[in-house]
């Protein structure tokens, strides 16, 4: 208990989220999300809902907005993995409330993505973040999890018929497996049915090209942009 009292002394003054006007509340949710404060993010999300904000608007302005800042600061070396994970967890809290409401409202899906970490690899923090940001941008995402073989990916493509296939790898020993999957797609004549996006810390643009992906994405926010660009190109062409 004494710990709590000490913490309270350190903490900023307790902010009454209910008392904040909308724009300040959105900013506060973004700050809380940055600080990884799940309960506060959940509370802020609920208040905006009570104020009749549309779920999609809360998602994009408060949650995705906040997470975009986290992404930038992670890329720039200001935030590290634990902070990103805490923020992601806080965002998840907010999304859990919004998700059922989003699917209930008949908003059109921005597109469908199947995503998974490749065979031999069980790193999933980055993948989970991509999933969340894509969902935040209105995509339907089917997450296959970790350690996915060619057969696993193919079964999911068959079952879900997504627009996009996303593959993640964090080990230099597992990244070549992306080429195995893509080559098999070519062999089966289905490569061009999908937009293939790849990512993970050890990858780069050059690697993405070499394995025959449509795009390499350095982080979750750019994945959203690149996915949208490719979908727009497809629709136009």
């Amino acid at each position: 208990m004494s710990d709590d009292i000490e913490n309270d002394e350190y903490d900023d003054e307790e902010i009454d989220l209910n008392a904040l006007p909308d724009d300040e509340l959105v900013e506060q949710i973004q700050n809380d999300l940055y600080d990884g404060l799940k309960e506060e993010v959940v509370e802020g999300t609920e208040i905006l809902l009570q104020r009749k904000w549309k779920p999609a608007k809360i998602l994009s302005e408060a949650l995705v907005g906040g997470m975009t800042i986290v992404g930038i600061d992670f890329r720039d070396g200001i935030l590290f993995v634990p902070e990103v994970l805490l923020s992601a967890n806080a965002m998840k809290g907010g999304m859990e409330i919004l998700k059922p409401l989003l699917s209930a409202s008949d908003s059109v899906s921005a597109g469908k993505m199947v995503i998974g970490t490749v065979k031999g690899d069980i790193h999933d923090i980055g993948k989970n973040l991509v999933k969340m940001m894509m969902e935040g941008a209105g995509f339907e995402v089917i997450d296959l999890g970790i350690n996915q073989s060619v057969d696993d990916y193919f079964a999911a493509l068959e079952e879900h018929k997504p627009d996009i296939l996303g593959m993640s790898a964090l080990l230099t020993t597992t990244m070549p497996y992306m080429k195995v999957v893509i080559d098999e797609m070519v062999a089966k004549g289905i490569r061009d049915d999908y937009i293939v996006l790849v990512g993970g810390a050890p990858l780069n643009e050059e690697f993405g090209e070499a394995v025959g992906a449509d795009g390499y994405c350095r982080d979750a926010a750019s994945t959203v942009d690149i996915a949208k660009q490719h979908l727009a190109l497809r629709k136009a062409g």
């Binding site: 993995v81 994970l85 805490l86 069980i122 923090i125």
Partner: peptide, 19 residues
């Protein structure tokens, strides 16, 4: 400490849930 588990033990499952 590097993974922040000293400050945030609740992250354990997010890191090692698949282990």
């Amino acid at each position: 400490k590097n993974l922040g588990l000293d400050r945030h033990p609740e992250l354990l499952n997010l890191y090692f849930g698949n282990y």
